[in-house]
Amino acid sequence: MEILSYLIPISLILGGLGLAGFFWMVKARQFDDPEGDANRILSDEFDDKPKS
């Protein structure tokens, strides 16, 4: 049971760091790419057909 006194704060700190990193990435607009998805669906760059 003594190990829980170490593991719980460590897990809370690591979870807080992950959450802070996620919010930082959202604020820095890392996940915004509305034009990329629209253009990627129309692109023939990655066709399933083999080129001969």
Rank of each mutant, 00 (worst) to 15 (best):
R29W: 04
L4T: 05
G36E: 03
I3L: 12
S5W: 08
E2H: 09
M25F: 09
L7D: 03
I3A: 11
G36N: 03
D44I: 06
L12T: 12
L4P: 00
F22A: 09
D33Y: 12
S43Q: 01
I41E: 14
V26Q: 07
G16W: 04
R29L: 00
S43C: 01
G15T: 14
K51G: 04
I41W: 03
R40S: 14
A20S: 00
R29N: 13
L4H: 00
E45D: 08
Q30I: 10
D32C: 07
L7Y: 04
S5I: 07
E45G: 11
F31C: 02
P50D: 01
D44E: 09
K49F: 06
G18N: 09
I10L: 14
E45F: 05
A28I: 06
A28E: 09
D33G: 07
F22E: 07
P50M: 01
I41L: 14
L12V: 15
I13Q: 07
M25K: 10
A20H: 00
I13N: 05
N39K: 15
S5Y: 10
L14C: 12
R29Q: 10
A38Y: 12
D33P: 01
E35N: 06
S43K: 02
P34R: 03
M25P: 00
Q30M: 06
S11F: 11
A38I: 08
D33V: 04
K51F: 12
P50I: 02
I8F: 07
L42T: 04
L14Y: 15
M1H: 09
R29G: 06
D37K: 13
I3T: 06
G36R: 06
E2P: 05
E35M: 08
L17Y: 06
G18T: 03
A28F: 00
G15P: 00
P9G: 02
A28Q: 09
L17S: 04
S52N: 13
D44G: 12
K27M: 11
S43M: 02
E2Y: 08
D44K: 06
F46S: 05
